[in-house]
Simulated scan of single mutants.
Amino acid sequence: MTFTSQSMENLTKINKALIFILLCFALLHFGSPFLIPFLLGAFLASLMKPFCSFLESLKFNRLAASLSSTFVVFIILGGLLLLFISQANQFVSDIGSIRDEIKTLIDNIQRETASITNISKEDQKDFWIGRSNQILDRLESVITNLINGVVNALSGLLLVLIYVFLLLLYQDRIDNFIMMYTPEKKKSQIRKITDHMNKVVYHYLWGRAKVMGLLGIMYYITFIVFDLPYALLITIFGTLITIIPYLGPFISGLIPIIFSFIFFDSVPKAVIFSVIIMIEQLIESYVLEPWIIGREVKLNPLVVIVAIIIGGIVWGVAGMILFVPLFAIIKIISNHTPGLEPIGYLLGQSKSV
């Protein structure tokens, strides 16, 4: 079998592409201790740029404006994390009573099962005892690991805040650095692309924050009306986890529904509560998100799923959160870079390039 020069050239291109992909994965994997906090800082700095500019318009110098913007981020994120930790600690301290509630729920399920299927509670007992203990132990382990993860995030918050401050402080120098490596005839085009990218990224992040806030308000009002235990904890967790597309909203709606069947004294009340939660999920996904965020940076569902899977493999939960806006940035750059428009078309939802 002989290879033509054209086939050899194609094989060389494929090999180069594979090597490039492997190098990217290696860089992302081994560079995660630096890249994860840096990207978090970069996204937060992009979100705070307009506020920083507003402070400068009020005669703040760049140092004071950057420091004030970083302090706002610290107050919001630090407050949320501390509030979550305090609520989670209370939940863990009450885990014994929660075990009793779950066992009561299982006992009720056994009773209903026996009345419907004529299978006695004694026949169900062996099945439920082993599995209920496994579920409870697993639940306690997951919650403990989650709290430890939040504590670690709190300890890493300082590094993220340092990146936010420095990126805001030196934003002009970074822009000038990019322009120094840009040919003169392309400077206006590159400046237009970077300005548009900053604008769209800010719009996406601020829109996502507003959607999460509105969902949190709907959740908390519903939880208070139905007197759901640990309402604040579930609201904070359920709101923040929606930042992970598809998987996040599913978990966000599933947890309060499970809690309603554990703690509510009647099944009809739990069913009504579950229906309301599902309606709020639909409002968030099909009303608030398209209206507030729009479709300019929307990725098609396949790309979002791929981003979540790859991000989870490479960086865990942090990757599941960060890789989606990263792919959105790649889409923005591709849409405004000659020769890369097909990539933007592939990543996006719109039918036009």
Rank of each mutant, 00 (worst) to 15 (best):
T2A: 07
F3D: 09
F3V: 07
F3Q: 07
Q6W: 07
M8W: 11
E9L: 13
L11W: 07
I14A: 10
I19V: 14
F30C: 04
P33N: 03
F34V: 08
L35Q: 03
L35K: 03
L39H: 00
S46Q: 11
S46D: 05
L47Y: 01
L47R: 04
P50W: 14
S53C: 12
F54R: 07
F54M: 14
R62Y: 08
A64H: 03
A65K: 02
T70P: 06
V72P: 00
V72G: 09
L77H: 06
L81E: 09
I85S: 09
S86C: 00
A88G: 14
Q90A: 13
F91S: 04
D94R: 14
D100Y: 12
I102C: 05
I106R: 05
D107P: 00
I109Y: 12
Q110W: 00
E112N: 10
T113S: 07
T117D: 09
Q124S: 07
W128F: 11
I129D: 09
I135L: 15
R138N: 09
E140C: 10
T144S: 08
T144P: 00
T144C: 00
N145V: 04
L146T: 08
G149P: 05
G156Q: 09
L158C: 06
Y163M: 06
F165V: 01
L166I: 12
L166A: 10
L168E: 10
L168P: 11
R173I: 13
I174P: 07
D175T: 04
M179S: 14
T182H: 05
E184M: 11
K186C: 13
K187I: 10
Q189G: 01
I190P: 02
I193V: 15
H203T: 12
L205M: 15
L205Q: 09
G207E: 13
R208P: 00
V211L: 05
T222I: 11
F223V: 06
L228W: 10
L233N: 05
I234E: 02
P245R: 02
G248T: 02
P256M: 13
I257H: 02
I257V: 12
I258L: 15
S260Y: 09
F261Y: 15
F264P: 00
D265A: 08
V267W: 12
I272W: 10
F273K: 03
V275L: 10
I277Q: 05
Y286D: 11
L288H: 07
E289N: 12
P290Y: 12
W291Y: 14
G294C: 10
R295T: 14
K298N: 09
N300C: 08
P301G: 11
V303D: 08
I305P: 03
A307S: 15
M320H: 03
I321R: 03
P325C: 04
N335Q: 08
H336Y: 13
G339Q: 03
G339V: 04
L340A: 05
I343V: 15
Y345E: 04
L346K: 08
K351I: 00
V353N: 05
